[in-house]
């Protein structure tokens, strides 16, 4: 079973993802992609760690190359999130764009899909915005993440959009 969760920031995607994951059979693996840059990210990471506590997840930190993440073969895997992963894969420390990012990210997710029993991927709706205000590299980021969202939604069994904490079923059968 493959499940994609999308929606704007702070709409309850993580909470719903963890609820779904805990209803799926163990072992459960959480793949975290957020780099602990500074105090704000660290707070966010701590908040997510606290939310996951006692829910039976093995946590793996993987900022790039998620194909290299290791977990048990029959695991239920939660990947959070495509927005951080895409930024990490796309930009180096100087902000230069790696044009092979799209293929690598997609191959990474497909590798997870192939190796686990259930896969939940959290992404974000970055395209609903006035895009003219951003520089070229941000525009390219929105484009690549948009393409990834389309490709994953096409492949995955179930897609939900989270709105004010309410899961709206976009594709597939309700879980």
């Amino acid at each position: 079973m493959t499940i994609l969760l999308t929606g704007g920031s702070a709409n309850g995607k993580s909470t719903f993802a963890e609820k779904l994951a805990t209803e799926l059979p163990a072992p459960r693996c959480y793949i975290a992609t957020m780099r602990p840059f500074g105090e704000e990210s660290q707070r966010k990471i701590d908040r997510h760690r606290e939310m996951r506590r006692d829910k039976g997840f093995d946590s793996v930190e993987r900022y790039t190359d998620i194909a290299g993440a290791e977990f048990e073969q029959n695991a239920s895997v939660l990947l959070e999130c495509m927005c951080n992963l895409t930024a990490n894969e796309m930009f180096d420390d100087n902000g230069n764009i790696d044009e092979t990012a799209y293929e690598r990210i997609l191959a990474g997710v497909l590798s997870l899909e192939k190796r686990c029993e259930n896969l939940i991927v959290v992404t974000n709706d970055v395209g609903s915005d006035v895009l003219g205000q951003y520089d070229d590299s941000t525009m390219r980021y929105v484009e690549i993440l948009g393409k990834l969202n389309i490709e994953l939604a096409k492949r995955f069994d179930v897609v939900y959009e989270l709105v004010a904490g309410i899961p709206l079923l976009i594709k597939g059968d309700a879980l």
Partner: peptide
């Protein structure tokens, strides 16, 4: 307003 979508 829903304000969470778009570029962070």
């Amino acid at each position: 307003d829903e304000v969470g979508s778009g570029v962070i």
